[in-house]
Nucleic acid binder design. Sequence first.
DNA 1: GCAAAAGTGTTTCGTCTACACCCATGT
DNA 2: ACATGGGTGTAGACGAAACACTTTTGC
Lengths: 246, 246
Amino acid sequence: MDELKNYLPHISLDCTIFGFHDGQLKVLLLRWKGTEDWCLPGGRVLHGENLDDAAHRNLQERTGLSEIFLQQFYTFGDVERYKNYSFQETLAKLGLPIELGKEIITRDVSVGYYALVEFAEVTPSPDFFTEECRWWDIDQIPPLLFDHNDMVTLALKTLRRQLSYQPVGYNLLPTKFTMPDLQQLYETILGQSLDRRNFQKRMLGYDILERLEERKTGGAHKAPYLYRFDKEKYEKALKDEILFVG
Amino acid sequence: MDELKNYLPHISLDCTIFGFHDGQLKVLLLRWKGTEDWCLPGGRVLHGENLDDAAHRNLQERTGLSEIFLQQFYTFGDVERYKNYSFQETLAKLGLPIELGKEIITRDVSVGYYALVEFAEVTPSPDFFTEECRWWDIDQIPPLLFDHNDMVTLALKTLRRQLSYQPVGYNLLPTKFTMPDLQQLYETILGQSLDRRNFQKRMLGYDILERLEERKTGGAHKAPYLYRFDKEKYEKALKDEILFVG
DNA sequence: GCAAAAGTGTTTCGTCTACACCCATGT
DNA sequence: ACATGGGTGTAGACGAAACACTTTTGC
C-alpha cells in the first residue's frame, strides 16, 4: 500500500485464471476483506516493468506458479467500468481511511489477461485487499465486482476461439495424461460433447502428442494409454496457429 | 500541448487505419515535423473519456470520418517499446524545449486499434506533431518510429484472422461495388488470389449482399453487376461471428 | 472479330461426421 | 460373467476446390 507511487497510475490488469479439475472448468476468484464480494485477481504495473511481466508477477503471487500460459485478450477502458460498485463502501468495510479512496477510485484502464494453469499445482493466496482465494466452477460464478463478469465471459469466449486455431492443454493438464482426459478438457472448454474416435484422430493428426508405453493404472476398466505433449511441436503449432477444431 | 494534464498519463493509443484503393491495401501514416520519420496516428485518452471514444475521436481528427469500423486488437506494454527512438533528438528537431521530453518521454502503455475506412471519403490531416499525413501501400511501409511496424504487422494479422469469422468490406468499399471489387479486397487483405466462381458462391451464400439491377458502366468489357451490403444482415453476421473464408 | 473480363454450373476431392465391434479390467 | 470404459476402422455426407463454356463490351 505504501508503494502506490511505484505503480503506473490509471492502469491495472486483471487475470482470469482457468483451471481444470473433476471435469469442471474453474476460475480463481478473490473475496474482499470483510465482505462477500468476489472479484478477479488483478494488479498494477510498476514503472519500468513490462506489462506482461506485471501480469506474470501477479499470477505468481496468486498461484505460486512461475511458468504460466498467459494471454492478453482485451483492454477494458470504459469510464463506467466501476458502476457496479462503491469504493467508499468497501473502504469503510475494510476500515481504511476514505482519503485512500482518492488514490484508488480514479478511473483505471484495465488490461485483461487469461491464464491456463495446472489445477493441482496451484496454491491460491489472497492479496492485501482480500482474505480468501479459491476456485469457482465456471458456471457457478457469482456476480463479481466492477466489470469482472464481463471479463470472465470475454476471456472464455476468446479461449474457445483460440481452441480453433491453436492447441490447448499443455498448461491445463499434468505432464502425462490420457486421451479421455484431453477430450474432457476440450469438451469442458467448448461446453459440448465430442465424438471419442474423431477427437482422437484429430488430436493425433496434429502431431503434437507422444504416446507413451505406459498406461494409466489403478482405474477400473481398460487401462488407457498415457500421452504427453511434444513440447517442441506444440510450441511450433502455437506459433504457426495451425487450424484446430472449431 | 497545453492540455497535457487533461490526458491520462502513461496511456496512449495508436491506430492502424486501413484503406483500399487501386487494388492496394493502404495504411495512413504521419510524418513528424522537420523529420523523415513516419509513424502511426495516435493519441491520448481524456480523463472521463472512454477508451474507445478516445480512439474514435482520434480517427475523426485524422480522417474526418465519424462512423468508422474500429477494433481494438492488442495493448503494447513493453518498457522498451521506444528503443528505436530518441525523444531528445526529435524535440530538438521540432525546436521544442528538452524539458518537454520529461512529460512525453515517460513510458506509455499503448492500446492498438485498427480501423477500416473508405479510401475516397478520407481527408488526411496531420496533428500537432506532424506535418504530413498520407496513405502508404501496405507493402511499402518504411521503418516506423517506436514499435509501430510491429503494430501494423499485428493489425494486419488480426484483420486476416477476422476475415475468417466475420464479414469485411462494409467499411472499406463504396456503397455500391462489384463482385470483382469485393474479391480484389479479399485477395489484397489475404495476400493470395482466390477462385472467382467459388468466391462469388461463398459470398452470396452468406446472404449479406443485395444485387442491384444496375450494372457498372464505363469500364471496358462486360458490365458487372453492382451489389450493396444488406446492412441489417451484415450487422447480424458481424455479431454472430458467422464462419467465413479462412 | 478479337481480346479481356464477367456470368454461371458441374464434377472431384478431401475432410469431417456418424457409427459398431472388439478388448481389457474390476467387481 | 458382466458392466464399463478404451482402442480402433470404415462408409457416407458435406463442403471446398478445381475447372470450362458462354456472353458482353471496347478497340
